[in-house]
């Protein structure tokens, strides 16, 4: 049976109204065909290519172009983007706000990327902040977060999160507290801050739909750091215990809230960490391969059982 035949049958049985049947049949016959996704994809790709090309051009041709031309033109693009967003934005709301226009989100994103190019150029060229040069990363991240919340833009939020990650990488490597440590502590601290930030803003009721973005970034940062510690640290036991706890939390929360990506994060990262320890203590290929068969089977059975009990069809 075709979809149209199903619709016709449901209409005849009064499972759907005639109006609904008309609308749905038009969709099925493609009398109404949305290219919303394709246009958004082109716009996103255009913004990314534009920003990438801009950065590349500035880097390669700064000597020919000259500082004033670069700074003024970048500032003009940034100001133009901000003007467009400020004058067209809907009033601020703590909830989900629909974009006032098709290009709105991408104009804001473009403005932020151009701002990054300009700030990076100013810093590298004139080194205004001297030894505190990384402060511009933190300031950029703060600006992106503010803009993401003001204009309800997930692309800019992700830009803020990645800029914050860059700042962590730079700043904490200078601090005495971390000077003898490895980047995994930094990743752990970053993940904790991001998770806390997401949960805190969610608790305050600020853009609660952003929570999942925060948690995806935080969980991956934390679990990667813990797996790294469980595999490569001098004394891996504390890392492994922490990894198991974090993985268990990810799995439990993922099942509870039916966010199966987090279940998978917990299972995969946890498995890698445990396997690294188990394999390290084993001798001989037979034992190692047997371990992978038995453990792989256990994970598959566990996931199938979980899926049957709480999973959803998709």
């Amino acid at each position: 049976m075709t979809t149209e035949q199903y619709l016709e049958r449901w209409r005849a049985e009064d499972a759907i109204t005639s109006e609904q049947a008309t609308v749905l049949t038009a969709l099925v016959r493609k009398e109404r065909f949305s290219v919303f996704l394709e246009l958004n994809a082109l716009l996103y790709l255009g913004v990314v290519l534009f920003a990438g090309g801009l950065g590349w051009t500035v880097r390669e041709h700064f000597a020919n172009l000259g500082d004033p031309a670069i700074i003024v033109s970048l500032a003009a693009v940034f100001a133009g983007c901000m003007y467009y967003c400020v004058t067209r934005a809907a009033p601020y709301s703590t909830g989900l706000v629909a974009s006032p226009s098709f290009a709105f989100d991408y104009v804001l994103y473009l403005g932020c990327l151009v701002f990054a190019v300009e700030l990076g150029y100013l810093q590298v060229r004139f080194q205004m902040l001297q030894v505190n040069w990384d402060a511009y990363l933190l300031a950029s991240a703060a600006l992106y977060f503010a803009l993401a919340y003001r204009f309800d833009n997930r692309f800019v939020l992700s830009l803020g999160l990645s800029t914050l990650a860059a700042w962590f990488g730079v700043r904490f490597s200078y601090l005495g507290f971390f000077i003898t440590r490895t980047p995994r502590e930094i990743a752990l601290a970053y993940g904790a801050v991001v998770a806390f930030g997401g949960l805190w803003t969610h608790r305050l009721g600020l853009k609660t739909h952003f929570l999942e973005t925060y948690l995806h970034v935080a969980v991956n940062a934390v679990l990667i750091a813990l797996v790294s510690g469980a595999i490569a640290a001098d004394s891996p036991e504390p890392w492994l215990i922490a990894l198991l706890v974090a993985s268990a939390v990810a799995v439990e929360r993922g099942i509870r809230f039916k966010r199966f990506a987090f279940v998978v994060y917990g299972v995969v990262y946890g498995y890698v960490g445990i396997s690294a320890q188990v394999v390290r203590g084993m001798h001989g290929d037979t034992a190692i391969l047997s371990y992978f068969i038995v453990s792989g089977l256990a994970v598959v059975v566990g996931l199938v059982v979980m899926s049957r009990k709480v999973g959803r069809e998709e």
Binding site: G120, Q127, D134, Y136, L159, L161, H216
Partner: peptide, 23 residues
């Protein structure tokens, strides 16, 4: 789909900052 791209873009931001080394 746009939400997924927006979230996942944290991993591939084309951020053109110059960074990670003191001047």
């Amino acid at each position: 789909a746009i939400t997924i791209v927006g979230t996942a873009s944290a991993a591939w931001q084309p951020q053109p900052h110059a960074q990670a080394q003191p001047p």
